[in-house]
Design a protein around this nucleic acid. Structure first.
Lengths: 333, 333
DNA sequence: TTGAAAGCGATACCAG
DNA sequence: CTGGTATCGCTTTCAA
């Protein structure tokens, strides 16, 4: 049977309250008393029951992290940062996968309280204003990414500007047929819309007419799906001069397809991605990409979340994270 | 203020017990009563408090997943499988990172009860018998991987045999200088020891004398570390005929280094990895690897964990997961 | 089939 | 600075 505060208190000859004081360290306790209590805790191998504490305090010390696809390297790197930052602040992280399903995104937000979590960091894909509005009593939530809505706090990279700048960077002399990979026809991924928008803005700046046939769709943002989509595309279309993939994962799949067909990168086609994951940096050739500080995202998301937890009523807070264009071998001219 | 069972009960004109019965669905409730209760729950936007339930039941419905490095694609894919399988069984997953620190591994096991979790799936790196033995009252734990100890349940791939078979597969005619990358000098990674052992066993079968200078160390199993280690190695040593990296992540880093130096894969050197991550399948060239079913690992780990939770006293259970050698372009002869 | 009341373990209030 | 006590929300005997 596990030891409780009562057991510790009895063994130390004090009251449960004193034991609690020793643990929480906020109320001062006389040194000898503290020593007796600490010894009793050690002897009994005492471990506090967090369910009980959570019930009493109304906080569990756990935050939720919900991502669309847990299998991607980007998810892994972001998760690592968030877990490490959360841990440093005394939070545990409970992880969820939404599968880009708006219904699931909504359920996670509204039922968060049931899931034993004090707050939620959510990377939504299609979450619209409506989904956030309807929940009257939302838990503290911080959104990650480009979704447009006015209620929840949010940490984001300016995908529009980044995609525009990347497109401009790809448009070296002689490279005018610039394709994008990752357009989602049908589904309304906010990220895809932003990045496609930035791409189109760049074309306008460059004076290149928009060509629908250069916008390659790819519903699942995975290497497998990207490789297949690009292969199918190249069977029916001429090789573009450059290919801007909306994620590094897709870019890696694209590189594989190009290599299989004997297309040389960057000589025959320049390739770029977005996210700057480790595997892109070590791709063959190393991948040009939009880079941003994932640790900063984690830090800011946790800051916003804790601020929201302590004051549920302040206005919406937005934090923008900067980006850089990392030109690597896949687009060197 | 959040609604409680009492509020629901009052509104439905029943007792709290009846509300509880409706939720848990085990004790039969008359249809009209159930309807009234369900309506009351909906009207009050009732969400059960899991801390209270956990306190009462002694179970939180959360399991822990502790991995050495959350940033790797392998961690991501394994996490995805475990989250999905756990979710299907009604468990949430709390994620932790050990950083390969044995002290942290031990702490997670012994303090698991404090962390609000019912059980722990742990992928240890250096956990020795001692670390498991000393905990008198361990929580339900399932270990992942090759660590040798006799107490905790475990799901594993036979790394020794897999490494042996991969080495044999690499040893095509004319390829006798087979190197390995990922040997950990100093630290005692159980996985590294197993894989190095399998490699040496294959050499013996092949009648190739072991050559210490072909065992390249690499403490951190990341692409960055692998790329750097291999570069340093190649500066001082001739190119081997084949390179067996102990993880796909390292292999990707190695491919990058080889490519930068103009070494052709597989013509000049065959390369292989271990884990079969998505990014390896789409590497340039696509990566030969040891493949195994990550979903099966998740399924079996959860089965062992739930069995252990319902019976803390049965003997140690071991489940072996099969593997296959996937020969892809990086080692085609 | 349903109701009343006890109690899981930790904490905060209020005395002393 | 420390002790008694009520309480968080839910489930579970035991009765009816």
């Amino acid at each position: 049977m596990r030891a409780t505060v009562k057991d510790v208190a009895r063994r130390a000859g004090v009251s449960p309250k004193t034991v609690s004081n020793v643990m929480n360290g906020v109320v001062p306790v006389a040194a000898p008393t503290r020593l007796r209590v600490e010894q009793a805790m050690a002897e009994l191998d005492y471990v506090p029951n967090l369910s009980a504490r959570g019930l009493r305090n109304g906080r569990s010390g756990v935050i939720g992290l919900a991502l669309p696809d847990l299998a991607t390297p980007f998810s892994a790197e972001l998760t690592q940062s968030i877990v490490e930052v959360a841990h440093a602040q005394g939070f545990s992280v409970q992880i969820e996968e939404t599968g880009s399903d708006p219904h699931r995104e909504h359920e996670l937000m509204t039922r968060a309280r049931a899931n034993l979590i004090d707050g939620l960091i959510l990377n939504p894909v299609v979450l619209k204003e409506s989904a956030v509005q309807m929940g009257v009593a939302l838990p503290p939530v911080v959104l990650l990414g480009e979704v447009t809505q006015q209620l929840a706090d949010r940490v984001f990279v300016d995908s529009f500007a980044a995609a525009r700048d990347m497109t401009l960077a790809l448009a070296k002399p002689g490279r005018r047929r610039i394709a994008v990979l990752g357009v989602n026809r049908g589904r309304h991924s906010a990220t895809a819309i932003q990045r496609a928008g930035g791409y189109e803005a760049a074309l306008q700046i460059l004076g290149i007419p928009k060509d629908e046939s250069l916008m390659i769709s790819c519903d699942s943002w995975t290497p497998a799906s990207a490789a297949a989509s690009l292969a199918e595309y190249l069977d029916a279309n001429p090789l573009p001069d450059a290919l801007f993939c909306f994620t590094d994962s897709m870019a890696l799949g694209a590189l594989n397809t190009l290599w299989k067909r004997g297309v040389r990168v960057p000589d025959d086609i320049a390739v770029a991605g977005f996210d700057d994951v480790n595997d892109g940096r070590y791709a063959v050739p190393s991948l040009t990409t939009v880079s941003f500080d994932k640790r900063a995202i984690a830090t800011q998301a946790l800051r916003l979340l804790t601020e929201r937890m302590s004051d549920r009523n302040h206005g919406q807070k937005l934090v923008e994270i900067g980006y850089t264009i990392e030109e690597r071998d896949s687009s060197k001219s």
